[in-house]
């Protein structure tokens, strides 16, 4: 659940030094208390992660009968495979699409909701519920609407003279998974943008309005700069979301196809490992992804916490 990372990071930064006096004294009780979490963390997180690293140095023969240590060969194969770079590029395009579409729509809606005198709360209620919809379900909903033979929107496009068939057309498949993923993320971005907007003092707007700045000018010179910490934070969160949490959308809607048009990095790990049974290669990809998640986490801590611009 990388989306909740930021709170943790902030907390680590700000509180790690401020040690407090221990309230209770006991030699064994604190160990007993952390034990359940520690055990689960070790068994289901640290151990598999270590396994992934170890497996990435191994290779199985074609029949899965023997395994040998091959050092960095899996990584070598991975980084010389043009298919992997294509997957990386697909992931970048997909993430950029999801982030731009979802954040653009949410910002527009949040600015409007911040403007209205009455009814902001109602709009909020009507806009937040997609947060609770699973990515896979969001995918199925949009798949149904864009289905070439039964979908409402596909039918509409057909009437307009545009042929829609995402089972054959890779670009259309990409567009479909982007729309479904972005739709689900609108509510999350909306909530944070709205909270960010409401934290901007009214008096700033009023002063600017008295000085003759119109609504658009005020947005560009006051709102947007003051909103930049929120925007940057959401940027990282959305990229993490698009990279790791949209597996359900892609698996349920396109299965990475047609061809490899919507095969993202995470889908590739799954497909190579579980369908292709290339355990070493899949493990090497897992390690690369873990490094990527680590890097994104560092970016969050370094830059987001330092308040982008004030």
């Amino acid at each position: 659940m990388p989306r909740l990372v930021r709170g943790a990071g902030h907390f680590v930064m700000s509180n790690i030094s401020s040690e407090r006096v221990p309230a209770f004294d006991s030699r064994w009780l604190p160990w007993l208390l952390v034990l359940p979490q520690l055990l689960i963390t070790l068994v289901f997180f640290i151990w598999p992660a270590a396994q992934a690293v170890w497996q990435s140095f191994l290779m199985e023969d074609a029949f899965g009968l023997s395994t040998e240590f091959v050092g960095l060969e899996n990584y070598q194969l991975l980084f010389t495979d043009p298919g992997y770079y294509k997957t990386l590029w697909t992931t970048v395009v997909f993430s950029a699409g999801v982030t731009a579409l979802s954040m653009g729509l949410s910002l527009t809606l949040a600015v409007m909701a911040d403007q209205v005198v009455r009814g902001a709360q109602v709009y909020k209620t009507l806009l937040i519920w997609p947060y609770a919809v699973a990515p896979a379900i969001a995918g199925v909903l949009w798949l149904f609407m864009f289905h070439p033979t039964v979908g409402v929107l596909a039918y509409l496009l057909d009437q307009l003279g545009y042929e829609w068939n995402h089972f054959l057309n890779g670009d259309q498949a990409m567009l479909l998974v982007i729309i479904a993923s972005a739709w689900k993320q609108i509510s999350y971005n909306f909530l944070f943008f709205l909270a960010g907007l409401q934290a901007i003092p009214r008096s700033l707007h009023e002063a600017a309005a008295i000085d003759g700045a119109g609504p658009l000018r005020r947005f560009i010179t006051i709102t947007f700069p003051l909103l930049s910490p929120t925007t940057f934070f959401l940027l990282v969160i959305n990229v993490v979301y698009a990279f790791f949490e949209t597996f359900g959308v892609i698996h349920a809607v396109t299965q990475g196809g047609p061809g490899d048009a919507t095969r993202t990095l995470v889908y590739n790990v799954y497909d190579d490992g579980f369908v292709g049974l290339d355990l070493g290669g899949s493990a090497a990809q897992s390690v690369v992804l873990m490094l990527l998640v680590g890097a994104l986490t560092v970016v969050q801590f370094r830059y987001v916490e330092r308040r982008v611009q004030y």
């Binding site: 992934a52 949490e245 490992g273 899949s282």
Partner: peptide
């Protein structure tokens, strides 16, 4: 926090 399940499937 840094290891979502998708990454170490």
């Amino acid at each position: 926090l840094m290891l979502p399940v998708e990454v170490r499937i």
